[in-house]
Amino acid sequence: MKLVIADDHAVVRTGFSMLLNYQEGMEVVGTAADGRQAFEKVKELSPDVLLLDLSMPPGESGLFAASKIHDMFPEVKILILTMYDDEEYITHTFKSGALGYILKNSPDDELIKAIRTVAKGERYIDPVLMNASFEKFLVTDEIPEHDKEPFNILTQRELEILPLVAKGYGNKDIAEMLFISVKTVEAHKSRIMDKLGLGSRPELVEYAVRKKLFDI
């Protein structure tokens, strides 16, 4: 089983690599420090499983990278690594195409179990986060009723643009980063504001911070 590890902390990449290379039938063939590097490593190395950190400032986040990688390389199984124990992120993990969600402080044997589970094409949720509402995610994409809020109706592209706007990037900068036109950025921004019921950039920034879409 070929693995790629994407995490913005070198010590985490090294530690996980040592652990996983020691396991029978597992080999870490590459590592990445952010979402964009993860995309390139997947493209270059064609791993079976990608371990992807959810938050990798200042680079591209794992949530957005997961969506792009799943669209381009659907055969690669994605396991999200995170310190966030917020159930809301489970929703977005599976919407992005990832198969698993595990906390970084989980025991080593639980991480191994998670990797082997997603490698078989099965879904995995850290046992610490499991409850009746989220058991359905193991077999379906249905979103629990209490998670049907404005955040969940944004498209993946809108979720990608929103934190960039909140960080203060201009339309031209965002267009260049995402390889789209300025008019497309403006259209997405307008739809984001409408969907979320926001009236100004300060409100958008506050929303992005509250939803942990980027780190301050």
Rank of each mutant, 00 (worst) to 15 (best):
E145L: 13
D108P: 02
E110P: 01
A166R: 08
K120C: 08
D109V: 01
D109M: 05
A175L: 12
A119G: 03
K113I: 00
N131M: 03
V165S: 15
A114K: 01
E122F: 02
H146I: 12
E135A: 02
I153T: 13
E149Q: 11
Y124V: 02
R157C: 02
P163K: 15
K113R: 04
A119L: 00
A132D: 15
D141M: 09
R123L: 04
D126N: 08
A166H: 08
D108Q: 09
K148C: 08
I125Q: 02
Y169A: 13
E160S: 14
Q156K: 12
P107Y: 07
F137C: 07
M130R: 11
T155N: 04
K172G: 12
A166E: 09
M130A: 13
E135S: 06
D109Q: 05
L159Y: 03
V139R: 15
N171C: 02
D126T: 02
L111W: 00
D173H: 11
A119R: 05
E149R: 13
E145F: 02
P163Y: 08
I161L: 03
V165H: 08
M130E: 07
S133H: 05
H146V: 06
K113Y: 00
M130H: 02
P163R: 14
N152C: 12
E145R: 11
N171W: 00
K136C: 04
L111P: 01
R116H: 09
G170D: 13
K120L: 12
I125N: 00
P107S: 13
E135P: 00
E149I: 13
V165I: 15
I143Q: 00
D173F: 08
K167C: 09
D147C: 13
